Amino acid sequence: MRVEIWSDIACPWCYIGKARFEKGLAAFAHRDAIEVVHRSFELDPGRGRGDTEPVIDMLAGKYGRTREEARAMEEHVASTARAEGLDYRTDGRDHGSTFDLHRLLHLAKARGRQDALLDLAYRANFAEERSVFDPGTLTALGAAAGLPEDEARAVLADEDAYAEDVRADEREAAALGATGVPFFVLDRRYGLSGAQPAETFTRALEQAWQGRTPEPSAPGIPACDPEGSCAV
């Protein structure tokens, strides 16, 4: 059974949601029969390459908050992440275009290294002092995930490489009605949004497993949870 996860590396709830999903999957009896595919979703698709700003400034501008309120928002997310055993820095992080990283993730998918690269990218963005908006950092992350360094560098240098794959994922997310991430589709029959508790993911997997069919229909799409997802 396939589980598709739309996410963006800039989304802290996706970072948390991935950890919770993996805990829920670990508790699922048929976990070895689950194929997980990560799909692209940009929270800031209009931002140009090289256009970065501090996360606190981005949050204050996007939500009309003061810098102090934006810091409090970050601290809330950080405490939630740490409760899941995840490292999270609230200072010194930047926000920028994730399009190139999504293109590199599609290369990693083709080479069977997608999940490894996603984990490294999340850690670099949220836990380490490394910018995932720098081509050099992305190349290094790709190599650490097991991609040939020259191949990763070539993809990043070619703006068309895997670009259509990213856009196709985003068109599909729009067609499914997804307006925020993380967004989970189980067996093409069930939709689940937000960084749900691990137990919720386990129950959803059990329901999807019991109801799976050879040719599943499109999923129903629930509303996004503002406390557990990132919206466009």
Rank of each mutant, 00 (worst) to 15 (best):
A27L: 15
A143G: 03
R47E: 10
R103E: 05
L107K: 11
I56M: 03
D158W: 00
G17R: 06
L118G: 07
G112K: 06
R71K: 14
H106T: 07
P222Q: 05
W6R: 03
D51N: 01
Y88F: 15
Y162A: 02
D57N: 07
R49D: 02
D165Q: 05
D225Y: 13
A116G: 09
A144P: 00
V181G: 08
R67C: 09
E42A: 06
R123L: 09
L117A: 05
V155H: 08
R203D: 07
P216S: 13
R71D: 08
E68V: 09
A83P: 04
I5H: 07
A231M: 13
V55Q: 14
E129S: 03
G112H: 15
A198K: 10
R82H: 10
E75Y: 08
D32E: 15
G142A: 03
G64R: 02
D57C: 01
L43V: 04
E69C: 06
H106Q: 13
E206V: 11
L147E: 00
G17T: 13
R39F: 02
G180L: 15
V185W: 14
A10Q: 06
L86R: 09
W6A: 05
G177F: 04
V155R: 01
G64Y: 06
E199Q: 14
P135G: 02
K62G: 01
K109S: 11
H76Q: 12
G146H: 00
A145G: 00
G191N: 13
D115L: 12
R103M: 05
T139S: 03
K23W: 02
G50D: 04
M58D: 12
A78L: 09
H76W: 15
A121P: 10
L147N: 00
V36W: 00
G220K: 11
G146Q: 00
T80F: 12
D32F: 15
A143T: 00
D115G: 13
F21W: 03
P222N: 12
L205N: 09
V185N: 10
E227Q: 14
Q210K: 12
E22C: 07
G61S: 01
G61R: 01
D91A: 11
G61H: 00
R67W: 11
A29Q: 08
R93D: 10
R67T: 12
G211I: 11
G92M: 12
V181C: 06
R82P: 03
T202P: 08
I5P: 05
G211C: 11
S193Q: 13
A178K: 02
Y190L: 09
A157G: 07
I16N: 07
V3Y: 04
P54C: 07
G85T: 12
L120K: 01
A178S: 04
T66S: 10
L86S: 05
F99N: 03
R188H: 15
A163C: 06
R153S: 03
A72Q: 06
V132L: 01
C224Y: 15
V132P: 01
R89I: 15
S229I: 14
H76V: 13
P219F: 15
E199G: 12
W13Y: 11
L107Y: 14
V37W: 13
L138C: 00
T139F: 00
D87K: 09
R20A: 04
D187C: 09
